[in-house]
Design a binder for these strands. Sequence first.
DNA 1: ACATATGCCGTAAACGTTTACGACGATGGA
DNA 2: TCCATCGTCGTAAACGTTTACGGCATATGT
Lengths: 344, 344
Amino acid sequence: MVGIKRLADHLNLSIGTVSRALNDRPDVNEDTRKRVLQAAGELNYVANQSGRSLRSGLTGAIGFMVQTGPQFNVQGDNFFTTVFDGVQTVLNRHHLDLIVLLCSASEDPDQYLRRMVLRRFVDGMIISHTLREDPRIAFLASRRLPFVTLGRSQTDAGQSWLDIDFEAIGRRAVERFVQRGHRNIAVALPLDDINLGSVLHAAVAATMAQNGLTLSAANTLRSHPGEIGGHEVAGQLMALSPRPTAIVLSDDSLAVGLYRGLMENGILPGRDISIIGRDSLPVRFLSPTLTRFGQSLRNLGIDLGEALLASMPAYERLYPLGKVRKVLDMQFFEGESDALTIAN
Amino acid sequence: MVGIKRLADHLNLSIGTVSRALNDRPDVNEDTRKRVLQAAGELNYVANQSGRSLRSGLTGAIGFMVQTGPQFNVQGDNFFTTVFDGVQTVLNRHHLDLIVLLCSASEDPDQYLRRMVLRRFVDGMIISHTLREDPRIAFLASRRLPFVTLGRSQTDAGQSWLDIDFEAIGRRAVERFVQRGHRNIAVALPLDDINLGSVLHAAVAATMAQNGLTLSAANTLRSHPGEIGGHEVAGQLMALSPRPTAIVLSDDSLAVGLYRGLMENGILPGRDISIIGRDSLPVRFLSPTLTRFGQSLRNLGIDLGEALLASMPAYERLYPLGKVRKVLDMQFFEGESDALTIAN
DNA sequence: ACATATGCCGTAAACGTTTACGACGATGGA
DNA sequence: TCCATCGTCGTAAACGTTTACGGCATATGT
């Protein structure tokens, strides 16, 4: 194993000089720096992270916490992998690496985060699946670990957040439904207390109210995520009487199961019911095509990365963004699933 | 920040004793051990990982390398998240944590792996997307880092591997097709040199040969993964004349796009063409339902975790499995997509 | 010529653990 | 009583870095 000592011996230099050369410190001759870098390359020297972390207190890694397990394979991989990719392009500019921290469904997310943070695995964190009241936020703030949340929260510790514009989704979807004559509108929400659920719910209810309609409790559907959840939603819709003529989905991953469930009952999306979803990429080719709102997930990742760097002392000069609190611009993709028009 | 020193002062003990107490070493009084554990709990002491790693050479983390980026959001998240969950349940038994290492599409996987390993982030690795000739295998072996691959490879360094039984999938799918009268059979494979592609290809070709058929180059389709890839496959199928009457897919994520592409051309799966896929969970509710092979992804994760532990010196006694080389049992799920029967 | 500044480098301490080793008192056997 | 053993604990070195500090030339200013 080649450490800095071996490298220094090989160069007839002290380890101090070698370290300075490798870390782009000022007081080292430009020629020796070149020599050092070349030798490091030849000998395949890579600084031991433990030694470096111990001394500097930094690990060079940023954690992105997500939850695994059956009830969480939410948005499909594609959602997260694309976001990750965006985060990484930002972090790589500064020799930081993104590592994904998986909290299994059987473990308490708060405990898990605690462990990871106290262990000093990462210099900063991005957390997702943000709850309306989320203890993780207070904890991270108390530890003064730089962090950003994907999804806002009512727990406010002055953190930066990025969020999908569920307010706009709810409002615009309902406006579109109303314009086409719908009066019996439903919304499909997640089961747990994730913040996006309440935002979407509030937006749908408010926009309906502005149009003289009320969102009933019966039309506020809750389900697991994913295909199975979509199938549940179909069942709930069929049980309603009168059946809603339009529904907005908190997530596209519901669509496949919803389609199937409806079709099993002879209900064709776009003909017998209008559906508007939210893009998470995997259902672009459904038939009939899904009308949906979407956003650039890669840009979301980039924004997350930059917001995080902005909150890290070492980088805040480079990213003078201050506190980032931003909802992403939504794009609208018109498909066939909301073609149904209600005559008055 | 409370370190072992503060903890020791608080207990009027030396740091040596405290460390031994925390690590279940023999020579420490049982009463003092209790005192130490309790105080550690009260003061929220968690050992600094850098210090511990520096001394012991171990990090307590296992890496699972996956590739991100548009061309890799392969099997849908659900594939990996479920596997991860299985791995984690095994690792957690021994206070090991799984961290996911994301190689972005813009970075060379070999370089990335190199960096992560030399940095000493992890005590062991699981790598996926195994190529037919994979330099990562030789590298990991040369560094003597315990590792397991998901997917076998022709590069053999004596490593353990787990794999999905693509041989069985190819064979059984073709046998089923042949039994139903199909003679013009196609296969959809990934673009790159991933090992599963060649295994599936070989199995399909061999089984066809056994039945007096030949798999032509034209019927060996290659596409990107995911929905978009499925749409590509549909286009390729439509361009063939005579059009194949049956196709086996290397991955289910192709199905949605394939369905759409075929339907756009008036071809209905199950009526005009037979399709057999491979389960990666996200398309259970497609319509018509997809006939497919599947396996327990969670068990796959558990097997991976145990195989890895078996190759780590510290755990090989507990998991005396030796070299694991195992293909998983496949289950068959009959759907509607392969209902087409060809009269002779 | 002298003092001061500058460029470059080596020295050594420090980061928080783990662990080999030795010290100490108590216990037991002779 | 003396020696050996055992149980328990403290001491200190080591892991591989980074960095404050000081040292030594050489360059610069008077």
